[in-house]
Design a protein around this nucleic acid. Structure first.
Length: 305
DNA sequence: GTAGGGATGGTCT
DNA sequence: GACCATCCCTACA
């Protein structure tokens, strides 16, 4: 910690007066030029909106019939993690602009014995209260000081699903602008697939602030989930289950295959080729004997006779 | 494209 | 004071 504080002091000293950072509304530091860009956001949103008017009308017209209601979230953690794949996360900005992204990667954190869960051992704190609330409750928490992650609570005490990656569907220019606010000036422009391919990236791109914590995803006017009318629900053989990311220090729990993603999708944050090979093998087996593989824990328990 | 290293500050013990 | 469900940049193949 002392070493880190020295770094902080050094960076503060080397920062030119004009380089003072501001605070983004989600608590993240942003550069002044990015801040001014943010101020221009509403007018740019209007431009983007007019360019997408036809599509937005389509979405608005279909919102009521496609929005996922409360009962959708009443699933076990692992089932919800899989069910969320292919669904569309919608963020309505203050000016009415809607940002949309299809969920392509999730992680299940069932709580209880799972030591990698914030709610491990039934531990309940001010931070993780949302994990113990009604299924469908949003859990937003800060990580590494400057980033946010978004989860959705499920059935089960202290259980939640982390949203890891989205495929941008609508509002990419605004997403790119929001993401650019945290990057170096002059950095190469982000490709569409790079806008939301990480848990904190998607929070930045969809402008998900910390204050969304404990909101109801089934009833909130600013953020909700939709069924994608243009695609069929993800088929089981399209889903890869792999160990979760960033929890290597949690022993056996780090090996649980509770990360789920759509096979071959370019927006997935980390591809696990070994898990893909194994799940492909498992699915081939399932075609022969469906009951032999893929338990509710997401593990592909191929019977070896 | 990918691996490695640095940066960041809230949360918990 | 240690840990952390991450990200970005740079260097290199």
């Amino acid at each position: 910690m002392a070493g880190r504080k020295r770094k902080l002091l050094a960076s503060a000293v080397t920062s030119a007066p004009g380089k003072a950072v501001n605070k983004h509304e989600n608590g993240a530091a942003i550069k002044p030029e990015a801040s001014s860009a943010k101020l221009k956001k509403s007018s740019q949103c209007e431009g983007a909106q007019s360019a997408e008017t036809e599509r937005s009308h389509y979405f608005i017209k279909n919102e009521l019939q496609h929005r996922q209601r409360k009962d959708f979230f009443h699933l076990s953690c692992i089932r919800l993690a899989k069910a969320l794949l292919g669904k569309v996360l919608v963020r309505r900005c203050a000016d009415g602009t809607e940002l949309r992204g299809r969920i392509v990667e999730t992680e299940a954190y069932p709580g209880g014995e799972d030591k990698a869960s914030h709610s491990a051992g039934g531990k309940r704190t001010e931070r993780n209260t949302a994990m113990f609330m009604e299924p469908g409750t949003i859990y937003v928490y800060p990580i590494y000081g400057i980033y946010l992650c978004m989860n959705v609570s499920s059935e089960g005490e202290g259980a939640a699903v982390l949203l890891r990656s989205l495929e941008p569907l609508q509002g990419q220019p605004i997403m790119r602008q929001l993401r650019a606010a945290r990057r170096k000036e002059g950095a190469r422009p982000l490709k569409d697939k790079e806008l939301c391919n990480g848990p904190s990236k998607l929070c930045q791109a969809l402008d998900i602030p910390r204050c969304f914590d404990r909101r109801d995803l089934a009833a909130d006017p600013e953020v909700w989930l939709e069924r994608d009318p243009n695609t069929n629900p993800a088929e089981p053989h399209d889903i890869v289950s792999a160990p979760r990311i960033g929890i290597e220090s949690h022993g056996e729990w780090a090996t649980k295959p509770w990360r789920f993603y759509l096979r071959g999708h370019s927006c997935v944050s980390v591809v696990n080729k070994e898990a893909e090979r194994q799940s492909l093998c498992g699915n081939e087996m399932r075609n022969l004997a469906p009951s032999d593989v893929q338990s509710d824990t997401g593990q592909h328990n191929v019977k070896r006779t």
